[in-house]
Amino acid sequence: TTQFTVHSPEQAEQWKEYAKQKGLEVHVQKKNGTWHVTIH
């Protein structure tokens, strides 16, 4: 599991796309103005 924080919805979307291409599961949670992205 990879977990990191991004600071814009655009970055979060890019990671979603990346994960989809790799066939991975991605979870994005918005918290205090940042987005926590978890890739399984």
Rank of each mutant, 00 (worst) to 15 (best):
His40Glu: 08
Thr1Gly: 09
Phe4Pro: 02
Glu10Lys: 07
Val28Trp: 03
Thr1Phe: 13
Glu17Trp: 08
Leu24Ala: 04
Val28Tyr: 03
Thr2Asn: 07
Val26Gly: 02
His40Lys: 11
His40Arg: 11
Val26Pro: 01
Glu17Arg: 08
His27Pro: 00
Asn32Cys: 06
Thr2Tyr: 15
Trp35Lys: 00
Thr38Phe: 07
Lys16Thr: 08
Gln21Asp: 10
Lys22Glu: 08
Lys20Ile: 12
Glu13Leu: 09
His27Gln: 09
Glu25Met: 11
Lys31His: 12
Gln29Pro: 01
Trp15Glu: 02
Ile39Asp: 00
Pro9Met: 15
Lys16Arg: 12
Lys16Trp: 08
Ile39Tyr: 02
Thr1Pro: 09
Thr2Asp: 06
Tyr18Pro: 00
Gln14Arg: 13
Thr34Gln: 13
Trp15Gln: 01
Thr1Arg: 10
Val28Cys: 00
Trp15Lys: 01
Gln11Glu: 15
Ala12Val: 15
Glu17Gly: 04
Glu25Tyr: 13
Gly23Thr: 02
Phe4Ser: 02
Leu24Val: 06
His7Cys: 06
His27Ser: 13
Gln11Trp: 05
Thr5Phe: 12
His36Ser: 08
Leu24Lys: 04
Val28Arg: 00
Val26Glu: 00
Val28Asp: 01
Val6Arg: 00
Thr2His: 13
Glu25His: 11
Val28Thr: 03
Gln29Gly: 05
Gln29Asp: 09
Val37Ser: 00
Gln21Trp: 09
Gly33Ile: 02
Thr2Arg: 13
Gly23Gln: 05
Glu13Thr: 06
Lys20Glu: 10
Lys20Pro: 02
Glu10Ser: 06
Gln29Thr: 13
Glu25Trp: 10
Pro9His: 15
Lys31Ser: 10
Gln14Asp: 06
His36Asn: 06
Gln21Ile: 11
Glu17Tyr: 07
His7Trp: 09
Val6His: 02
Lys20Asn: 09
Ala12Gly: 03
His27Thr: 14
Lys22Trp: 14
Lys16Glu: 09
His7Gln: 11
Thr38Asn: 03
His27Cys: 07
Val37Met: 03
Trp15Pro: 00
His40Phe: 15
Tyr18His: 04
His7Asp: 14
Gln11Leu: 14
Thr2Met: 15
Gly23Met: 04
Gln11His: 09
Thr34Phe: 13
Glu10Asn: 05
Thr34Asn: 08
Ile39Phe: 06
Pro9Gln: 15
Phe4Ile: 11
Gly33Gln: 05
Thr2Pro: 04
Ala12Thr: 03
Lys22Val: 10
Glu25Ile: 13
His40Pro: 03
Ser8Tyr: 06
His7Lys: 09
Glu13Trp: 09
Glu10Ile: 07
Tyr18Cys: 07
Phe4Ala: 02
Lys22Leu: 14
Val26Phe: 11
Thr1Ser: 09
Val37Gln: 00
Thr5His: 08
Ser8Lys: 04
Glu10Pro: 02
Val37Phe: 04
Tyr18Thr: 03
Gln3Met: 12
Glu17Thr: 08
Val6Asp: 01
His36Lys: 07
Gln14Lys: 13
Val26Leu: 06
Thr1Tyr: 14
Thr38His: 05
Ser8Phe: 06
Ser8Trp: 06
Lys31Leu: 14
Leu24Met: 07
Thr1Ala: 10
Thr1Lys: 11
Val37Cys: 01
Phe4Lys: 03
His7Gly: 11
Glu10Tyr: 09
Trp15Phe: 05
Val6Leu: 05
Val26Arg: 00
Gln14Leu: 14
Val37Glu: 00
Gln11Pro: 02
Trp35Asn: 01
His40Gln: 11
Thr34Tyr: 13
Thr34Val: 15
Gln3Lys: 12
Asn32Asp: 13
Phe4Asp: 02
Phe4Asn: 02
Tyr18Asp: 02
Thr1Glu: 07
Asn32Gln: 07
Glu13Ala: 10
Asn32Arg: 05
Thr34Ser: 13
His40Asn: 08
Tyr18Met: 04
Ala12Lys: 02
Asn32Pro: 02
His27Leu: 10
Val37Asn: 00
Val26Ala: 07
Val6Trp: 02
Trp35Thr: 01
Lys31Glu: 11
Gln21Gly: 09
Gln11Lys: 09
His7Asn: 13
Glu25Pro: 05
Thr2Ile: 15
Gln14Ser: 09
Glu17Phe: 07
Val26Gln: 01
Glu10Val: 08
